[in-house]
Each structure stands twice: as structure tokens, then as C-alpha cells.
Design a protein around this nucleic acid. Structure first.
Length: 694
DNA sequence: ATTCCCCACCTTTTT
DNA sequence: GGTGGGGAAT
């Protein structure tokens, strides 16, 4: 296989990464640990996919490869590419093999989804109900809030931290494996006085989840981690996989790193890939030290292969990115070199305000489309989801179709949560969180009655039959019977999954109309949900996978584009990771956004913002445009105020960095009609004239 | 006990 | 501009 055609188009470093351990081929490639440091655009995904394919072509069983990625999308992509490589490498007559490779490569997914799968499998070893419910961030927060209320912490004289803050602290502490005290002191200093109360809250929160057979995102990792702490189980699971490959290793947290080490204590068969310059998830407790210290964690040290040949961008784009990173104090220095050569210099365009920015971007987008760069080869990126608001309005006005990634999700809409809660309750009758929500949808049923009803359910081991015997307050009696009938129907194990969402939707409709103002648009979302549900084989799979991999594009303003139709991509930088476009526009490149006004204070946070800008810039293949509005509204201002900053050039755009850019200014009226230009200097003070009339 | 209405507060990034 | 919490009316 050493001269195999699938290796031909790889460069030396890539080939080294792909074939690492080949000399041990007869032992199934179980070589020592490997770290691939892959700069932006250096063919990281391709290299990993080739490695998977290469392993398979050399006799490794795809079912014994664990491939951990950061998003579900990345996992699918990796599977697809590996399949294509294998298919191509083998003779055409064996075409079917490629297909089965992708299928057999079933252990490919996010840490969380693989955890979910393993935990359901080993549930009985963990005294865990295999029908456990996975709850998303919002539900976790609601649960936290309920506990917070019950403990009387909400009513304290001094403001107790809000539910989201409580959850953020909890999550950070869990994922970093630090003590609560340290977490508070270092990350949430303003909450430190509440430490004893928070500890109490978290204990109650954990108990509550356990009683209801609920696992939150963190629990998926925690349980997996705990499971790996039991030597027999750890060995059993570790032996199931000959190879463990991890993508985006720079964004793993301590818990995840420890899981990996217990899977492969000596590092045999372990290969991780990442780029410390693209570490942008520290807020989620990601530990860059994982990648920096990876080689030394093993004896002998792990092999390190560095990929620096960039296939994505032209050299001028990389010059800008390199200049930006050259000013980062702590890093693994690498200099990206383009395999594509010369191209247009990146531009920094200064505009008056957000409206001019939106106008300008629309104009540029259309101009490029005329020049045969389709919309889907262009993307607009920004620091936070709301930064595209003005642009979205403008795009809709000009009927330019777009899809937005990141930001508020479909699943966070309350009506969607209502409907899903019914299904969750039916799926796991012990899920009192869902029950609590559903019961209160009925008119006349508030928190008190809901608690009473749930109390009776608990007393009868959560048998839904108990619903029949609950004496609902007379005004709600009729609706209570309808709900009871619905729940019993859904709970019937004989009932096929198909049609269940429809059933719930029909039941829910009158409540929806009563509760919400514009119920029609919301009804549309439920139709979407019904459609989506038909793609899943079972209720459990639907609910879990929806939570672990929520649909991440919203495009309500311009109307959902039909597949294959051309549309512009709008995305937060975080959601744009790993992607690439011909042209990239970056909005609001000003201080307050780059770096985010919330990140100031700590040097590490500022550096992460720099990396964020770096990630954004390195998404561009040919054209990179940074737009800097002179007038930029700061968030977190008192309402109704028009507070903004002027000329806040991003501190990352130093004179040195700016040398890599062509700078220009665009004034609002230039966009309207160039023919009106040329009247500079001739101004009329209309206001003064009107006043002087009196 | 529920519901409705008003007021204060806060506004990042995501599995 | 939306949401969450508190208080008053039903």
C-alpha cells in the first residue's frame, strides 16, 4: 500500500501524518500517540480523512475506529470523505465497499453524542435508567431556576446570581475539574460571596436531575468520565477501539482530555489534530494546554507533525493573518505559506455607521455575484449573532436570500419547547421538568397545581395512569382529560413513532392560539418540526439527537431557501469554524467587537479575541474585506440611549498589520448615486436658516 | 392560586 | 427590544 494512489496528492507532512505507524501495519497500525499541528487551511480535514481511509485500506475495521469531532457536521464530512477515498483507492468493481465503510464508521461524532451512545449501552453498570433524557442548555437553566426557587435563594435580600450565571459557573467548574472556590475566585469573582449557597444549589440540582433521569450536556461527559474511572469498564471500552482520532483538539477541555487518556493510557492508536492559534472556546472551559502539553504526556513523547502549507487562501490573505498572529505574545509560531500564490490584497473599509456598512456589503455581494461568484461562495462573519441585524433587514429588502448560522436557535422558541416537552414527558415519565411545563399550558393550571399533580405522579412511580385520578380544578377539568388521553396514547409502547408529532400538534394548537399573539408563524415552526421528526427512526432518537445536534440555521427574514438555491451565508465566527468561502466580509472590526467589550480585562481573554479574528480572516480564499463602522453602538447601554463610540479602530489592527491591507473609506451617499458626488464643501445649515425665520 | 400588567434589568461565543 | 420578577386584581 505504500505507493497507493490515495497518498499521491498529499504533501510530505500530510503523508507522514496519514501513514504514521505504518511500520506496525501487521499489528493494525497501533503505533504511539500522534499530534498533528495543522494551521488554518492546511488540509486538516483531508489529512484526517485520509488517515481513516488509509487505516481501513490496511485492514483496520472501521467499526473499531472512534472519531471525535467538534460538530456533527464535521463528523459527517469526515465520513463522506473517507468513504470517497477508500472507494477511489479500490478498484471500481468493489465500489460497494466504500459505502459500507461509511456505514461501519459509526463511531464518528461529537464527544457528547458518543457519550450518549456509550452511556445508554452501559447504563445498567452505572445504575442509570437507559431511557434517560438529555436536556439542552435552556432546560438545564429552567431546572436550575426551579431548584433555586425551592431553596429560597431567589428571595434573598441581595441579588443571588441568575439562573444562567448559576449554570455557567456549574458548567465551568465541572468541565475544568476545578474546585468551586477556585472557579468563583478566578472566573466569577462577583459571585464568590455566594459560595456556600451555590454549593447547596448545585447539590440539589444534581439530586434533582438524578431523580428525574435527566442528563445535561455536562453530565454526558461527567458520566463518561466516571465510567472510565472504573478500571474494568475503562479497559473494556478502550479495547473496543483500535484507533481514536480527535479533531479540533485545541478546543477540548480537561474532562475530555482525561476521557481520552483513560481510553488509551499509553497513547497507542491515539491521533489528535488541532491548531493552538484557533483556540476560541475557553469560555466553554476548553484548555489550550491540552494541545500544548500533549507530546509530553506520554513516554516516549508523542510524535508531532506540523502542517503549514496552506491550500485555501492566496498569499496576501495569509500575509494579513500572519501579521496579526505575529503580535500574539504566547503561541506556537508558524508561518502560513500559500500554495496558491498571489491574489488581491485584503481591504479594510471604513464606513460611517451600521446602515452604510449594510449597504456597502449588499453592494459588494451583488457586484461579485455579477462577476460569477455565487452567493454561497460568499460569507458575512461577525463576532456575535446580533451584529448582523441591520444587514439582515437590508438583505431582506433587496431580496437577497441568506442563511444564518449561530445565534438564537429554533429549539429555544417557547412554542417549540412546549411541543417537545410533551414528547419528552411521554418518553421519560420521570422527567418532571417536562411535565411541569406541559401541565401549565392548561388554562387554570399554574405552578401550584402543577406541583400537586406531579406530587401524585411521583407517589405512584410516575405511572401516567395516575393522571386519570388527579382532581384538576373544575375550570381545567375538560382540558385535563384531554391531556391525560394524549399522554396515555403517546405512552403506549405499541404506538408507532410516525404521526406522534402530529398528534401532539393537534392537541397543542388551541393552547398555542390562546397563549401567543401571532400564532400563525409559530404554527409554521411546528410544521417544520413535524417534517423534521419524520427523518428519525424513533422518538428517543429524535429527542436526543435534536438536543445534541440542533438545527443551526435560521433564515426567517428572507424565507428559507430551497436546497440547491443560491444563498448568502451569515455566520458567527464560532459557527464558521472549519469552513471556507471565496469572499469573506467581516463586520464591525472595531474595539468593542474585536475584542468584544466583555473580553477586556484579562490578557488571556484578549488573546482569544485575537485568535477569533484570525479564524475569521483565514476563512477567505480570495477576497477578504474587513468593515469598520466609525459609529458603533455599544451593547449593554441604558435603554433608549444612543451611546456609541467613534473611530474605535480595533486594537489588533496595528500599523504593522494594516500594512497588509488596502484601506479605504466609503461614505453613505456614495452608495446611493455616484452622480450626486462633487458638491463637497457646499453645505447649507438648514436648521439655522429655519430658526432664523422666526 | 392564577393571571395580568408594569417595571427593571441586561444584552457573546456553543456541545 | 425582550425577558424575568414582583405585585395587584380576579
Amino acid at each position: 500500500m505504500s505507493t497507493a494512489s490515495h497518498l499521491e496528492k498529499l504533501n510530505t507532512a500530510q503523508r507522514k501524518a496519514v501513514t504514521h505507524g505504518e511500520t506496525l501495519a501487521e499489528k493494525g497500525f497501533k503505533s504511539g500517540p500522534l499530534l498533528i499541528v495543522a494551521g488554518a487551511g492546511t488540509g486538516k480535514t483531508d489529512t484526517l480523512a485520509h488517515r481513516v481511509a488509509h487505516l481501513v485500506l490496511n485492514g483496520v475495521d472501521p467499526a473499531r475506529i472512534l472519531l471525535l469531532t467538534f460538530t456533527r457536521r464535521a463528523a459527517l464530512e469526515m465520513r463522506r470523505r473517507a468513504r470517497d477515498i477508500v472507494r477511489k483507492a479500490l478498484s471500481e468493481s468493489l465500489g460497494g465497499v466504500g459505502q459500507s465503510v461509511a456505514q461501519r464508521l459509526s463511531w464518528a461524532g461529537t464527544f457528547h453524542s458518543m457519550a450518549n451512545r456509550l452511556l445508554r449501552h452501559y447504563a445498567r453498570h452505572l445504575q442509570l435508567d437507559p431511557r434517560f433524557t438529555v436536556v439542552d442548555r435552556g432546560d438545564s437553566a429552567d431546572l436550575m431556576d426551579a431548584v433555586r426557587e425551592e431553596l429560597g435563594l431567589a428571595a434573598k435580600a441581595e441579588r443571588f446570581p441568575r439562573k444562567d450565571t448559576c449554570l455557567a459557573i456549574y458548567s465551568y467548574r465541572v468541565n475544568t475539574q476545578r474546585s468551586l472556590k477556585d472557579t468563583l475566585e478566578q472566573q466569577f469573582a462577583w459571585c464568590a460571596p455566594w459560595e456556600p449557597d451555590l454549593a447547596k444549589l448545585y447539590r440539589a440540582y444534581v439530586e434533582r436531575k438524578q431523580r428525574a433521569s435527566i442528563l445535561d450536556y455536562d453530565d454526558l461527559l461527567l458520566y463518561w468520565h466516571a465510567m472510565m474511572g472504573e478500571p474494568k469498564l475503562a479497559q473494556h471500552i478502550g479495547e473496543h477501539f483500535d484507533h481514536v482520532l480527535v479533531d479540533e483538539y485545541q478546543d477540548t477541555n480537561r474532562l475530555q482530555a482525561e476521557i481520552l487518556h483513560s481510553l488509551k493510557p499509553d497513547g497507542a492508536g491515539l491521533a489528535v489534530v488541532g491548531d493552538d492559534a484557533q483556540a476560541i472556546y475557553s469560555f466553554r472551559a476548553a484548555a489550550v494546554e491540552n494541545i500544548l502539553g500533549f507530546p509530553e504526556r506520554f513516554t516516549p513523547r508523542a510524535e508531532v507533525v506540523t502542517l503549514a502549507q496552506n491550500y485555501r487562501s492566496t498569499q496576501p490573505v495569509l500575509d494579513a493573518a500572519n501579521a496579526l498572529m505575529a503580535e500574539a505574545p504566547r503561541q506556537h509560531r508558524k508561518h502560513l505559506l500559500s500554495a496558491r500564490g498571489a491574489g488581491a490584497r485584503p481591504r479594510l473599509v471604513t464606513v460611517d455607521d451600521l446602515q452604510v456598512q449594510a449597504d456597502f456589503v449588499c453592494g459588494e455581494v451583488l457586484r461579485r455575484r455579477e462577476a460569477n461568484v455565487p452567493l454561497r461562495r460568499q460569507a458575512v462573519l461577525f463576532r456575535s449573532a446580533s451584529h448582523s441585524d441591520t444587514l439582515e433587514v437590508e438583505l431582506a429588502k433587496r431580496k437577497i436570500p441568506f442563511v444564518k448560522y449561530g445565534g438564537l436557535k429554533f429549539l429555544e422558541a417557547s412554542h417549540v419547547k412546549d411541543l417537545l416537552s410533551v414528547l419528552r414527558w411521554a418518553d421519560n415519565p420521570r422527567n418532571t421538568l417536562a411535565a411541569f411545563r406541559v401541565i401549565q399550558l392548561l388554562q387554570g393550571m399554574g405552578p401550584a397545581n402543577a406541583r400537586k399533580a406531579i406530587g401524585e405522579l411521583e407517589a405512584r412511580q410516575h405511572s401516567l395512569e395516575a393522571l386519570k385520578d388527579f382532581a384538576a380544578p373544575p375550570p381545567s377539568a375538560v382540558e385535563w382529560r384531554k391531556l391525560t388521553a394524549l399522554m396515555l396514547e403517546l405512552a403506549d409502547p405499541q404506538r408507532p413513532w410516525a404521526g406522534q408529532v402530529h398528534l401532539v400538534r393537534e392537541w397543542y394548537r388551541p393552547h398555542l392560539e390562546r397563549i401567543y399573539e401571532h400564532f400563525h408563524t409559530r404554527l409554521g415552526d411546528l410544521d417544520q418540526l413535524e417534517l423534521l421528526s419524520s427523518q428519525y427512526p424513533s422518538r428517543e432518537r429524535f429527542l436526543t439527537e435534536l438536543t445534541l445536534d440542533p438545527p443551526d440555521a435560521t433564515s426567517d427574514l428572507a424565507g428559507a431557501p430551497v436546497v440547491d438555491e443560491d444563498y448568502l451565508v451569515l455566520s458567527t465566527i464560532h459557527s464558521a469554524k472549519g469552513m471556507e468561502w471565496d469572499t469573506v466580509y467581516l463586520l464591525n472590526v472595531v474595539d468593542g467587537s474585536f475584542p468584544s467589550e466583555f473580553a477586556t480585562g484579562k490578557p488571556e481573554l484578549i488573546e482569544e479575541e485575537r485568535r477569533l479574528l484570525y479564524v475569521a480572516m483565514t476563512r477567505a480564499q480570495n477576497d477578504l474585506l474587513l468593515v469598520a463602522p466609525l459609529k458603533f453602538h455599544l451593547t449593554s447601554q441604558p435603554r433608549q440611549s444612543d451611546a456609541h463610540v467613534y473611530g474605535g479602530r480595533s486594537r489588533f489592527l496595528t500599523d504593522k498589520v494594516l500594512k497588509a491591507f488596502d484601506s479605504s473609506t466609503v461614505r453613505g451617499r456614495e452608495l446611493d448615486d455616484p452622480a450626486l458626488e462633487g458638491a463637497e464643501g457646499a453645505t447649507v445649515d438648514v436648521a439655522e436658516r429655519l430658526k432664523s425665520m422666526w
